[in-house]
Design a protein around this nucleic acid. Structure first.
Lengths: 230, 230
DNA sequence: TGTCAAGAGAGATTCGAAAGTTGTCCCGAA
DNA sequence: TTCGGGACAACTTTCGAATCTCTCTTGACA
C-alpha cells in the first residue's frame, strides 16, 4: 500500500456526495447559486469535477440548471411539493404493496431493525423542532426498509428518488410547521405492523395517508414561514 | 446576428442528443464500449464535453458506467427487461388512469392527432420487420400523448423515462421476434377509444395488457436470437 | 424622462494536455 | 507447463487556462 489516497471511487463521486450531503444538511440553501469558483475552493477540486457532480445532481433534481447561467440548488415551492406529492402518494404505496406481497424474511428483519432505531430517536426528540440528523437518517432508513421488499429494482429506485427529493422539503419546512397533535411514532409503528402482518390493503393505505398528511403539514409550514431564505 | 452558431444550447446538450439518437438508431450497439478517443473523433468534440454527455446518459440508464473502466451502451438482458416491465405495468397504467381523469380537451386532441399518424404508419408497414424510424417515432408520440393528460409532471417524467428505456429493447428485439398474430393497430385504437371515452377502468387495463404482451414477445425474440451482438 | 446600444465584468463552457489507473503481455522461475 | 512479477500501453480521470455568453452598467439620443 504505497498510495495514501483511495483509488476506489473517483473524485467526482466524492464531490457529488459532499454537495448532496451539504444540500440535505442545509449548508447549501434552496435557490442558492452554485458558482464554480466557489465550489472549487470549497471542495478543493477543479471546474471539470465540480461540473460533473452538478450534472449528476441535476439528474436527481436536487439542483436545477439553465444553459449559460449556471446551477442553483433546487427551489422549494408549494407547486413543486404538490406535484411531488401527487406522484408519491401513487407510487410509494404501490411499491410498498409489492414489497408486502414479495418481501422475504430478510425484508421483515430490516423493518424490525430500522423501526427499533427510529423508535429510539423518536423518544429522544419529542417535537419536530428537536429532530437532529440522526432522526432524519433513521426515518429515511425505516422508509427505505419498508420498500426494500419490492423485487423490481427500478420501481424501488424511482420511488426512492422521489423520496429523496421530498426529503429536502422535510428538512426545510419541519422547523417551521406548527406541530399539530400528530402521533408520528404511532403511524410508523402501524406501518411496520401492517408490513409484518402482510396486510397488502392496510399497509399501502396507511402509507398513502402518512405521505399526504406530512405534505399538508409541510405545505402549511412553507406558506406560513416564507422567511426560509437566509 | 454575427454568430453563425446557435448559442442557445450548449455543445454538451448537442452531443448528448446525438449519442442518444445513435443509441436508439442502433448505430451504437448494446454493450459497446464508448471510448473517449473515439467519441471525440466521431462527434468532433473534447473529452470534457463527451464525458458530461455520458454522465447525463448514465442518469437516463441508457449507458452504464464503472469507475476507471469507462462507459458502455446499456446491456440488454431478459432480467433487465423483466424488471423494467414489472415497473412499467404498474406505473404506466397508473399514469394513464390519472390522465383519463384529469386530461383536458387539448389532451384529447393530442391523442386523436397522434393516433391518426400512427394508424397511417401501421398501414404502411404490415409486419414488425417493415417498421422504420417513422413508425417508432409515431408510436412513441402516441403513447406519450396518452400519458400527457396526467397533471403531475413528475409522474409523467418518471413514466416516460422507463418507456424510453424499454424503447431500446423494442428496437433490438422487434426484428427478431416471431410475428405472432397480433392486432397491434387494434390495440392502439382501443387505447385511444378508451381514453376518449374517459373509461378509467378499461383504459389502464388495456395498457397493462398492451405492455405485458409486448414484453412477452420481445423476451421471446431476445432469447431466440441471441446473435444480437454484432 | 424614457429607450436603446455599446462596453465591461462576472462567470459558464470548452479545450487539450498532464496525471493516474487498469488490464495485458512478456519473461523468468518453479 | 503453470504461476507470479513487472513493465508497457491504452484509457480514464483531473486540471487550469482560454474562449465564449450573459448580465448589468453607463451614456448617448429621442
Amino acid at each position: 500500500m504505497i498510495r495514501p489516497s483511495k483509488p476506489r471511487q473517483t473524485r467526482t463521486a466524492e464531490v457529488y456526495e459532499r454537495i448532496r450531503a451539504d444540500i440535505f444538511a442545509a449548508r447549501l440553501k434552496p435557490g442558492q447559486r452554485l458558482k464554480f469558483p466557489d465550489l472549487c475552493a470549497t471542495y478543493e477540486t477543479s471546474v471539470g469535477v465540480a461540473r460533473e457532480a452538478l450534472v449528476r445532481l441535476a439528474a436527481d433534481r436536487l439542483v436545477s440548471v439553465q444553459a449559460h447561467q449556471g446551477y442553483t440548488v433546487a427551489e422549494l415551492s408549494i407547486e413543486q411539493l404538490t406535484d411531488l406529492t401527487a406522484a408519491r402518494v401513487e407510487l410509494e404505496p404501490l411499491t410498498f404493496r409489492k414489497a408486502i406481497l414479495e418481501g422475504d424474511e430478510h425484508w421483515e428483519s430490516g423493518i424490525v431493525a430500522t423501526h427499533h432505531l427510529l423508535a429510539l430517536r423518536e423518544q429522544a426528540s419529542r417535537s419536530s423542532k428537536e429532530r437532529d440528523a440522526s432522526w432524519y437518517a433513521a426515518h429515511e432508513d425505516f422508509h427505505a426498509a419498508l420498500l426494500a421488499g419490492c423485487r423490481s429494482r427500478r420501481l424501488r429506485e424511482v420511488t426512492q428518488m422521489l423520496r429523496a427529493e421530498a426529503e429536502l422539503y422535510r428538512h426545510w419546512a419541519a422547523p417551521l410547521g406548527a406541530d399539530v397533535k400528530r402521533d408520528l411514532a404511532g403511524e410508523h409503528r402501524a406501518l411496520a405492523d401492517a408490513a409484518l402482518a402482510r396486510d397488502a390493503e392496510l399497509g399501502p393505505e396507511l402509507l398513502h395517508r402518512h405521505i399526504a398528511c406530512t405534505t399538508e403539514i409541510l405545505a402549511r409550514g412553507i406558506s406560513e414561514g416564507t422567511e426560509v431564505q437566509a
